[in-house]
Amino acid sequence: MSLITEEVRAKSEIYHGDELCQEKSKELLREISLPNGLLPLQDMVECGYHRETGFVWMKQKKSYTHKFEKIGKLVSYATEVTATVEPNRIKKLTGVKTKELLVWISLSEIYVDDPPTGKITFKTPSGLSRSFPVSAFEVEEPAKEAKENKEEVKGVNGAVEVKEV
């Protein structure tokens, strides 16, 4: 059963499309002082944020397994990832597992003790935890390209078109 109810959706900021969701998820991670490469989801179709409660969700077309090269760890992200966020912490995490030896283990919490140079800790529902350098989850972001000159033009039927000038 999904945690994303109609009531939650009605009071949330909701974004659609991979490019916009990628931008918004990185923005959220910066806002709560967590490393920007922590949620490397792909082909996202929707993401949402209920600011009042801190509840967030991200949906992608298919599950994705990512290897964090700096620490040599595999992490699997389900088609739907949900959590509650607050400064320096992600709680009630669902849809994220890490591989330890031969077993996939669910993660339930992620937090940073002393941002931005401290350690980032990952906890399981059973209380086991493991810490790594925050730098292992930072991704260098490409410089934003200069935006092209564009102009909005109202069509005959009231539709808005974006045209290059």
Rank of each mutant, 00 (worst) to 15 (best):
V85K: 01
Y49F: 01
F68H: 00
A146H: 14
L39K: 04
T84F: 08
S135C: 13
K97A: 12
S129T: 05
N36I: 12
E13D: 04
V81G: 01
K24L: 11
Y15Q: 07
K11S: 10
G95Q: 02
E161S: 15
V8D: 02
G72D: 03
E100A: 11
E31I: 07
V112Y: 00
V96C: 05
K70S: 15
I110A: 01
T65S: 14
G37F: 02
G17T: 02
V8Y: 06
A143I: 08
T53S: 11
F132R: 00
K144T: 14
E6K: 04
T94H: 05
N36D: 07
Y15I: 06
Y111I: 05
K99S: 12
H50Q: 11
T121W: 07
V162A: 11
G37V: 08
E23Q: 07
G54F: 00
F68A: 00
I14F: 00
S25K: 03
L38G: 05
S131Q: 05
F68E: 01
P40L: 08
C21W: 06
V165I: 14
F68I: 02
S131M: 01
V162L: 15
K150N: 09
I110M: 06
E138S: 09
V139P: 03
E148W: 13
E164Y: 13
K147R: 08
E6H: 07
H66G: 03
W57Q: 01
V81D: 05
K92F: 15
F68K: 01
S33G: 07
K123F: 01
K163I: 14
Q22V: 15
G95P: 00
Y64L: 09
L28W: 10
E23L: 13
V112G: 01
T117K: 14
Y49D: 13
W57R: 01
H50W: 06
E164S: 05
V81H: 11
K92L: 15
E109Y: 10
H66L: 13
E19M: 11
S106V: 08
N157L: 11
K70C: 10
I32A: 05
L74V: 04
K91G: 15
P116F: 08
T5Y: 14
D18T: 08
G48P: 06
M1I: 07
N149Y: 13
L41Q: 10
T117F: 09
I4G: 02
R89K: 12
G37K: 06
L74K: 08
G127P: 03
N157Q: 11
E19A: 08
T124I: 11
L34D: 06
K91F: 09
V139F: 02
V156K: 10
I105L: 07
N149G: 05
S2K: 03
A136H: 00
P125I: 01
L102R: 07
A159S: 09
E161V: 12
K119V: 06
E164H: 13
K59M: 07
Y111G: 15
T94A: 03
E100G: 13
D43W: 03
S126G: 09
G54C: 04
L101M: 09
E145M: 13
Q42G: 11
S106N: 14
E141L: 04
